[in-house]
C-alpha cells in the first residue's frame, strides 16, 4: 500500500501562497490582492486588540495596515502621482 505523500513545510507554504494567488500576481489583480491582505491584517488586528499583551505585534499590524492602504490608493489610481 502506498504511503500518502507527506507535505513538507516548504511545499505547504508554497501551496498556501499559490492558492492565495500571491506568488506571481498578475498586474490587474494587485488591487484585489492588497484588499485581501488588508482583510487578513484587520482580522489579526482585531484579535490583538482583545489581548493586553503583545503590543509590538499590534503596532506592526497597524503599520502594515496603513502601508497597505497607501498602496491601495496608488494602485487604484493606476500608479499615478500621489496627492497625499
Amino acid at each position: 500500500m502506498n504511503q500518502p505523500h507527506e507535505e513538507s513545510e516548504e511545499e505547504r507554504v508554497w501551496r498556501v501562497l499559490s492558492e492565495a494567488g500571491l506568488i506571481d500576481i498578475p498586474p490587474d489583480e494587485f488591487a484585489e490582492r492588497i484588499k485581501e491582505a488588508k482583510h487578513v491584517v484587520i482580522g489579526r488586528l482585531g484579535e490583538l486588540l482583545e489581548l493586553t499583551t503583545d503590543t509590538q505585534e499590534r503596532e506592526s499590524a497597524a503599520i502594515s495596515l496603513a502601508t497597505l492602504r497607501k498602496l491601495e490608493r496608488t494602485v487604484s489610481r493606476g500608479g499615478g502621482q500621489s496627492s497625499d
Partner: peptide, 24 residues
C-alpha cells in the same frame, strides 16, 4: 516596485494568516 510589492503581500499574508484568519 512590482517585485517588492509581490513579496510584501506574500509576507503580510503569511505573517498574519497564521492566526487562522481567512480571506473573503
Amino acid at each position: 516596485f512590482w517585485a517588492e510589492l509581490n513579496q510584501y503581500l506574500a509576507y503580510t499574508y503569511l505573517k498574519y494568516k497564521r492566526a487562522g484568519v481567512k480571506p473573503p
